[in-house]
Design a protein around this nucleic acid. Structure first.
Length: 302
RNA sequence: GGCUCGAUAGCUCAGUUGGUAGAGCAGCGGAUUGAAAAUCCGCGUGUCGGCGGUUCGAUCCCGUCUCGAGCCA
């Protein structure tokens, strides 16, 4: 018997999340729910290293390939997609195994959204015309408290804070403080594990996987129509596009994908390390799927 | 075989009129609640090819050797 709450399974890209998720699901009467920003998209299974057809036949998989390439997405939309799916799986007495590496998306799911306005493209376009300095000055004027704790070198964050003030008519800092208070002890009720691999091991896996996926990824990108702004930022998509446009050769393409993937994996590790409620699961190089340690960490009897 | 140029961080290179050196990329660390596979911040990791010489002091000048590129034979 498993507690009636989802199990979160996180880890950097190429750490082996998908195969571990399948094994856990098989043992614990569970179903896999995607928490990966780019595996939500249809038609990019290879590029995004989505679970294989074989894996999906073993246990049910949800939220893979549910978005069209030209659809946009954000953390809130993901939350709204995932919540009913998780509820539905639980209602059938199954264990949802929420698997993915998108830290912000997962955080929206586990900690809920703060009451902030959704980004408005037209408004963002107006803000994009301003210099960073002008944005910073505007934020300092609208909300000095938020300005003092925002990374003022990060244009994205400054833009977002200004946007929140202007769209809501309230102070960004007030809205965010409210959420911080509400979610302070949410982590205590969650259970999740994150896969830890030695850096060199992870790099080797990324190296190998990048080469293996290239042909399939090229095919996927070639038949793809217009990509949404969200999808256009996917690692691999940009590089393969450039390859198809003749800007770079194959070797350069793979190398760039490898580099970008390594850097992404490092950012993921930083994110998950900070999430104190996640229990680390060490997966040694060349070791088999660590099913029993994972079940133990998850508190599942076996 | 002769001549010329080059050899400096993991890679590509800059530099020191002689006082043991710094950029980009890679790498490492961090931030991160509606763009997040995004965005941003911090950190130089080095027998300055080897061995001799000149000098108070050589990565820099001189000699020699090794390796690489080119030119002439």
């Amino acid at each position: 018997m498993s507690p009636p709450a989802p199990l979160y399974l996180c880890g950097p890209t190429a750490s082996g999340k998908s195969s571990l998720a399948v094994e856990i699901a098989r043992q614990a009467d569970g179903e896999v729910v995607n928490a990966d920003a780019y595996q939500l998209y249809r038609g990019l299974e290879t590029l995004t290293a989505a679970p294989t057809r074989e894996q999906r036949e073993i246990v049910p998989h949800h939220l893979f390939g549910v978005l069209d390439p030209d659809e946009g997405c954000d953390a809130m939309r993901f939350r709204e997609l995932a919540l009913p799916v998780i509820e539905e799986v639980l209602s059938r007495g199954k264990l949802p195994i929420v698997t993915g590496g998108s830290g912000l998306y997962l955080k929206f799911l586990t900690h809920g959204p703060s009451p902030l306005p959704t980004g408005d493209p037209a408004h963002r376009e107006r803000l994009a015309a301003l210099s960073l300095n002008e944005l910073v000055e505007r934020l300092k004027h609208l909300d000095p408290v938020e300005a003092a704790r925002t990374d003022l070198m990060n244009r994205r964050y400054v833009t977002r804070a200004v946007e929140i003030c202007e769209l809501s008519g309230e102070r960004c800092s007030d809205l965010r403080d409210r959420w911080e208070t509400i979610t302070a002890d949410v982590g205590n009720k969650l259970r999740g594990i994150f896969i830890q691999r030695e850096r060199a091991d992870l790099h080797q896996r990324i190296h190998r996987r990048s080469a293996e996926m290239l042909d399939g990824a090229i095919e996927e990108v070639a038949v793809l129509g217009d990509a949404s702004e969200t999808l256009g930022m996917a690692i691999g998509y940009r590089e393969v596009r450039e390859l198809l446009d003749g800007g770079i050769d194959r070797e350069t393409c793979v190398e760039r994908i490898r580099t970008a993937t390594r850097q992404y994996a490092k950012r993921q590790e930083t994110w998950f390390r900070r999430e104190a409620w996640l229990k680390p699961l060490v997966w040694a190089p060349d070791a088999a799927v660590p099913l029993n340690p994972a079940l133990r960490l998850a508190g599942i009897r076996f």
